[in-house]
Write a protein that binds this DNA or RNA. Structure first.
Lengths: 188, 188
DNA sequence: CCTCAAGTAGAACGATCGGTCTCTTTCATT
DNA sequence: AATGAAAGAGACCGATCGTTCTACTTGAGG
């Protein structure tokens, strides 16, 4: 291979991409491994080689989503914006996501609804993601105004959760509009 | 019987109460009808007499939750409060619910996450509930200030959704506190 | 050339799923 | 006392679930 460890596995990538798509669109418990295997175009044995159980596949799906969001937000944090503009950018990203045609709500909230047991690895992964997100938002608000940062930051996250949850249960345009306005009010 | 149509069915009531408890606590797709039957202390045949399919049982569970909320809020609406105080009372009810020891999030949002298909009866029931709730809240804000009512009302619902979604994924006390403060800010 | 991991192909496992069936018992209403 | 709906008890169905298995093929690296 050209460089070291670049080639992971074509089958594994397809498997995870397919699982992500179907799990997000239809829910985790509503989809069997047969569906994932069939639509990924691989074999049972291949799937179980890379993901020894469905539990692991689902957990990987959530952890990968977590990683992607962290990467995206992380890039924003290193840009030369003011903290307020960073928050605005994050809010706009959320609004865009809600308006995406295949938007089905927050992958993490949906997963938590399907796995309410706090001991479940998927549930834990969701909590880990949310803890990171809240801390990140609180950190940004802290740079704006140390006194009101806690309340404003938590309000921001609450609006995000509400917008993401309602985004696929109402008109997305309306929801994202309400969300962006509320965030604007929070930042002035 | 003492009066007309008071006696519905002891078994049916127990069945629905048990289903409500387990479905809400553990998720609908994670619980089989065997669990419901066993914990309700009834027979398979009895369950299928009252609820010809699991789908119907689940739909009834959501519709009953809908009815209960409408009844509770409806009682508030006929009390002699100002519209703003009615909204405050509704918000306080939500905050109390979040602090309830067995709180596992919004039953409607959780159900929607498990049944994303818009054609599913359960999904439809959730949409119906949410449409009623939004309209009710908008109506109250409309009585306060006709100009800003739409935005404020939608913001109220968005905060509610966020609070209910996050209430079991973080410290409930903190979440309900943030929610009530945000509502207070919205009403002044 | 040989090796060995990765992938294909598909049968098969026990468990559980939602749902149907028959038979008996209870019990309030006529 | 007779009737019939409601409920109990439990066997049974086909389908699907997640999972394991064996056997064959491919392809890149030593």
């Amino acid at each position: 291979m050209s460089s070291e460890t670049v080639k992971v596995s074509k089958a594994r990538d397809k498997l995870l991409a397919t699982a992500t798509e179907i799990f997000y669109a239809e829910g985790v418990n509503s989809v069997g491994v047969d569906r994932v295997i069939a639509e990924a175009g691989v074999t049972r044995a291949t799937m179980y080689r890379h993901f020894p159980s469905k539990q692991i596949l689902v957990t990987t799906y959530i952890q990968e989503a977590d990683r992607a969001v962290r990467e995206h937000v992380g890039a924003l944090l290193t840009s030369d914006r003011t903290p307020a503009d960073m928050l605005r950018a994050i809010a706009e990203n959320i609004a865009e996501e809600i308006n995406f045609s295949h938007f089905r709500g927050c992958a993490f909230l949906n997963a938590a609804a399907e796995f309410p047991d706090p001991g479940n690895p998927v549930h834990k992964a969701v909590l880990a993601h949310r803890a990171w997100f809240l801390e990140t938002i609180l950190g940004l608000f802290d740079q704006i105004d140390r006194d009101s940062s806690d309340d404003a930051g938590r309000r921001f996250v609450m609006l995000r959760d509400g917008a993401m949850a309602a985004g696929c249960l109402a008109e997305p345009k309306q929801v994202s509009r309400t969300f962006l306005r509320a965030v604007d009010a929070l930042l002035s």
